[in-house]
Design a protein around this nucleic acid. Sequence first.
DNA 1: TTGTACGCGTTATCAA
DNA 2: TTGATAACGCGTACAA
Lengths: 369, 369
Amino acid sequence: MTASRSLPRQATVADVARRAGVGKSTASRALGGYGAVSEEVRDRVLAAAEELGYRPNELARSMNTGRSRTIGVVVGDVENPYFSVALRGISDTARAAGYDVVLANTSERLADERDAVRFFLDKRVDAMIVSPATSYDTEHLVTVLEASRPLVLLDRRVDSVDAVGVRVRIAAAAAQATELLIGLGHRRIAFVSALTTDGDRFSGLETAVSSVSDRLAGLVGALQSNGIAVDPDLIRYLAVDEAETAAIIDELLGMADPPTAILASDATVALNVLIALRSRRLSVPRDISVIAFDDSPWARISDPPLTGITHPIYEVGVTAAKAALRLIDGTSVSSQEFDAELTLRESHGRPKGVKGRMLEAGEEREVVR
Amino acid sequence: MTASRSLPRQATVADVARRAGVGKSTASRALGGYGAVSEEVRDRVLAAAEELGYRPNELARSMNTGRSRTIGVVVGDVENPYFSVALRGISDTARAAGYDVVLANTSERLADERDAVRFFLDKRVDAMIVSPATSYDTEHLVTVLEASRPLVLLDRRVDSVDAVGVRVRIAAAAAQATELLIGLGHRRIAFVSALTTDGDRFSGLETAVSSVSDRLAGLVGALQSNGIAVDPDLIRYLAVDEAETAAIIDELLGMADPPTAILASDATVALNVLIALRSRRLSVPRDISVIAFDDSPWARISDPPLTGITHPIYEVGVTAAKAALRLIDGTSVSSQEFDAELTLRESHGRPKGVKGRMLEAGEEREVVR
DNA sequence: TTGTACGCGTTATCAA
DNA sequence: TTGATAACGCGTACAA
């Protein structure tokens, strides 16, 4: 029994053919179920395959079909529920079509993204779905297109690359959320994001990530159309973790004219914002309002329940995967956008010092529409 | 410019060799950096490769090395934070070692798990990390071992399969949580799980998933050592979503002798339990206590902050990936277990009607230790 | 309907 | 150090 090291070598088509007493290609056809094979021979081949425990070598198969039945997915971080839900949508859809999903986490680092894309290309994935860390540096994405491999952009736009995108129309909802706050009397509204790509520079309102830019555009648009000045100091990035977020909150609260409301770019940021506020003994929404530009299952049982924007992320994932699959099949596909909608809960209220009783949820809804 | 359809065909080693004026194998060595190649020839080859934009075809490479530099991961659901965090750990570790991660979601369905395992085997992944949906039906896992491919069991034990496992010692923490409740005066403690594998039958305290069995073992052990009877009706499965969980909660609350505390098997179940209790206007922990056998970022800002068991899941993922990588290298590896620890927050208290003031967190901790 | 022979792009063998 | 040649396991013209 020293055979453990001498692997019993997987049976190949040749083995099956020999055993069934037919030619290699005949066996291949019978197994693949594609050519023309007589009933009797087919049975014989299948039986032989069964006996030998034959399993096709997908690697070899891929090599001369040129198709690996694999879709590469490149995202910032699966740990982020936003991505993990989208990934689930992608994975479900891909698998239903017989495709595997290869995953790469970039931590939103361009270098990692480039490596991942290159590696996936080398591995001959049939298509790639990527949520680019930046819309500025996109040579590696062009590479994908040049290799004539389908590319689907997930959740984020990239201007210079002509690829299909699946996104959420977040700007309108962001504006709606801002209008809600303005209607309640807020004038100093902060925006906190985990964005790291731009470093700490504030370049107009254009950031490297379109989904963040869109949120900002909604916010700024609503402010401007209400004649409220946009204060760059209220727009904060780099809220990557609890400590950084807490520091940002401290800075905001320490301002001469501090914000009365905070818009969190995503659910994770919102969570860290709530933690920071709580540890500073601030009550939401009495002392300060918080709205997330993202929704999360826990938003319903947080203290207070969190008002936020609900994205159909699973659907976005499904649609991205479908787009990739269609592109693989050579069908043309156009970009697609989903609507996001504001879900009212209890984390928003009138700014401190502004008179008026707390509005009921029903009334608030009227204010918004 | 009708050349868009005539793909410029990726340059191959042969192309590079020709351009550099050397033999194919020499070029291959220079590119792979393994054989013996003269300084001058190497430079020439590398330059040629650069000019042609040569990229290795990993598929072809894999085919005769037999190694695909890919690790297959099979879990129930990436959408579940527990898995997505573990996956992140796996992914980070794998990528650092130059490996890709292929993902399969089984929705805890055995059939899907079998398919995934088979498919991964066919694709010649170098190792597999799987969190099996059931410990009863494990032929497909044996297949992996028989194909002499490294297999690492994630978070769950499987008795009949001799594979390396990376797990959390959850039983002790579960017992600790139960003791905490008993110490507070609880006698009727319910257990709610999302487990579906066993259907709705209650087979002793052994379930198909070891991580659930372990939780139950901790619970039951603590009950018994305190002379408290174990009521099978208090042990519930199939809390797969909000509706099912709500139905279970209704059943529990409708009992003649309803539970005064609920142990939720994981964070998602806990969330649904909290939602159900809230919509029934029950206050936690005044009306009923809730403890999760799992922790979550939102547990700190939920209403009330949720007492639960904290697992080092990211570490579990990292360790599982390291184990897989070592097994690939032929190094022997033994199973590993991590400790889980009870994190006290505010969702537990004395049962209704039991006298005594609310204990401070510090005091509770003393009760537990 | 069946079988032969070749190609996919790479690494491995082995003689020169 | 080098290069021709043989695998790897499969699909697929093409001929029989």
